[in-house]
Design a protein around this nucleic acid. Structure first.
Length: 572
RNA sequence: GGGCCUGUAGCUCAAUUGGUCAGAGCAGAGCGCUCAUAACGCUUUGGUUGGGGGUUCGAGUCCCUCCGGGCCUACCA
């Protein structure tokens, strides 16, 4: 047994996430966490809402709420949806927590003590009408290059030219449209990542078998151009972690907050501390996960995220931890994902294109989504959601292969022997063939799960389900029963045990269906299988069971067409 | 512009990382079964591995080039 720390990239507080966001971090992290727990490891699975920054302030302003109230409300919404998808976080924290404030200020103090903070005076655009400094992309104007009149201050979307906000002709605030803009001087803290470039580079080089996606992005940032650039870690906003040097004021930084990308990853630690607080535990309880001098030396730390998050997790956050010169636990493995597209295009929050987490749960149970998303996870390249594929996969895999197997076994058993595991009979060649086929598949499934090869694991699991149907066909208890009832009893006894095995193995992918299978078997033995003959004799003769409700009803063509139309765009 | 990823049967994806593997699932076709959610099982039809060139005894697997798809490029998070 080992100790495994798992974090999922933090979903931003601004609105409900779509299926692409879900499959890019939280869902695969949950799969891995569930698998590790099932194998008997001690797991700490952490996630949180990322609550600071300009978009949160603007979203709150739009609904007329105070930003703190808005975040609290949206945190609840997201936590509820996470629960709906059965995401098994040990703690779902908030980056606005007191814990995170203190940790963020602590890291800033340590970084400053060690010479990794520099104060820089820069010039930024200030909007008098909005009463705030504007990030580059919140300034719009006419592109000096192509004349496009809605170019953003960081880049023109029309001609893709990189811009500086002061390049724009007739610049205006993208928030209010106001043209009362002026350039003001403001002072900010920079994280001197460049000083840690070689250290980070060596650390990346020392990692084994990271996905190409992860290392190539990190290497690009480390070696491109002048190498790793220093990065501003403060902003002129009111909503965020106040800039302080530990507990002490930071002269010249009054009224400023840390940049969300500085405090968000620190919330991985903060949320673990929040977990301890929520359970009435002491400091040591969370520090043993994060401080290598206090017990975390033997922890394996795995992060899950979409590719857009990779630079921050391979560079900035490690720089923060390393620069503190304190023994904080660094990540051991980064599992990164490409994007999931929606039916020929991208998911779009603004256009309401694609399926969002709340809508998904309205129309189908979580297991349907979990299975499709995980078995089609965008591991090697961007992948695409289509309703045809979704309907076909889910109906075939879940309803026909798995659900129907449970159905045919329990119904036949009940009809011939009553609702108890039947006794008698001997095993023969069909059973030997089943075990011979199942054992290597089980080991392959375990290996793929350990390696976080998600699609491969899903296909192996499906093959394991299919073995049940092949076995039934070969053993044919309905035929055997006519001449040898005891022989048929043995087949059904084994098949009922097979259902239990499937419940255990499938639980990381489809937890609700697994629970339903176990409940119908009147069983609570979730032990992961060792030797199959043992695992398949867990339910003894005489053990009561019931025929469960249909595990997975099929998606009809009418439903598919209706959903296709409903989610094509313009969310109501 | 620069960098990275990707293009394998109608669809979704595999190929121990140059060596009998060009494969699986779905879809299609045929047969079988009747316990079951018109479900299941068996057999089977599909590919000059995007095009072209090269290295090699041998290339989806390496190199060059062309074509297509995607991502990143540091003040959105």
């Amino acid at each position: 047994m080992s100790r495994i720390l798992i974090t999922s990239a933090l979903p931003y507080i601004n609105g409900i996430k779509h299926l692409g966001n879900l499959v890019g971090s939280q869902l695969p992290a949950d799969l891995f966490a569930r698998f590790c727990r099932a194998r008997g490891h001690e797991v700490m699975f952490i996630c949180a809402t990322d609550e600071h920054g300009t978009p949160a302030e603007l979203a709150a302003a739009k609904t007329g709420e105070d930003v703190a109230a808005y975040c609290e409300r949206m945190h609840r919404v997201q936590a509820e949806l996470a629960h709906g998808f059965r995401l098994s976080f040990d703690h779902y924290g908030r980056s606005s927590s007191e814990r995170n404030k203190r940790l963020t200020q602590h890291f800033a103090e340590k970084l400053a003590e060690n010479g990794f903070i520099e104060e820089v005076t820069e010039r930024q655009v200030y909007s008098r009408a909005d009463g705030r400094f504007l990030p580059d992309r919140y300034i719009e104007g006419t592109c000096p290059n192509c004349g496009y009149d809605r170019a953003r201050g960081d880049q023109c979307e029309n001609c893709t030219k990189q811009l500086d906000p002061t390049d724009l002709i007739d610049p205006r605030s993208a928030i209010s449209g106001s043209t009362e803009l002026e350039v003001r001087e403001t002072r900010h803290l920079y994280l001197r990542q460049s000083l840690l470039k070689d250290e980070i580079d060596a650390w990346i080089d020392s990692q084994q078998d990271w996905p190409v996606l992860t290392t190539s992005i990190a290497k690009k940032w480390l070696h491109d151009g002048d190498g790793l650039q220093d990065r501003g870690i403060t902003r002129d906003l009111s909503w965020g972690v106040p800039v302080k040097k530990g507990d002490a004021p930071w002269p010249g930084m009054e009224g400023k907050v840390f940049y969300v990308w500085f405090d968000a990853p620190i919330e991985y630690i903060g949320a673990t501390a929040e977990w301890a607080d929520a359970h009435g535990l002491d400091e040591a309880a969370w520090r043993r996960w994060w401080r290598t001098d206090e017990g975390a030396a033997d922890v394996r730390y795995v992060q899950f995220m979409g590719k857009d998050n990779v630079p921050f997790h391979t560079l900035s956050f490690p720089a923060t931890l390393m620069g503190s010169r304190e023994p904080w636990k660094l990540v051991d493995y980064i599992k990164s994902f490409n994007y999931l597209n929606y039916d020929g295009g991208q998911f779009s929050t603004s256009q309401g294109r694609g399926v969002f987490m709340d809508q998904a749960l309205e129309i189908l149970p979580a297991d349907y989504w979990r299975w499709w998303l995980l078995s089609h996870a965008p591991e090697n390249s961007d992948s695409e959601f289509t309703w045809e594929n979704f309907q076909a996969s889910v109906n075939k895999d879940l309803a026909d292969v798995l659900g129907n197997f449970v159905s045919r076994v329990t119904k036949f058993g009940r009809a011939r022997f009553g609702e108890a595991v039947p006794e008698g009979g001997d095993f023969g060649p069909a059973e030997e063939a089943l075990l011979a086929a199942l054992t290597p598949r089980l080991r392959a499934y375990e290996a793929h799960m350990e390696a976080m090869e998600i699609r491969k694991a899903a296909y192996e699991l499906r093959a394991i389900w299919a073995e049940g149907n092949e076995y039934l066909q070969a053993a044919a208890p309905w035929a055997v029963f006519k001449t040898d009832p005891a022989g048929a009893a043995a087949i059904i006894r084994l098949s009922l045990n097979l259902i239990r095995l499937y419940a255990v193995l499938s639980q990381p992918f489809i937890p609700d269906a697994s629970a339903a299978m176990m409940e119908s078997l009147n069983c609570d033995d979730w032990r992961w299988p060792g030797a199959l003959p043992d695992a398949l004799s867990t339910l003894p003769a005489g053990h009561a069971f019931v025929v469960p409700e249909v595990l997975f009803r099929k998606i009809t063509d009418d439903e598919r067409e209706a959903w296709q139309a409903r989610f094509a765009g313009l969310r109501s």
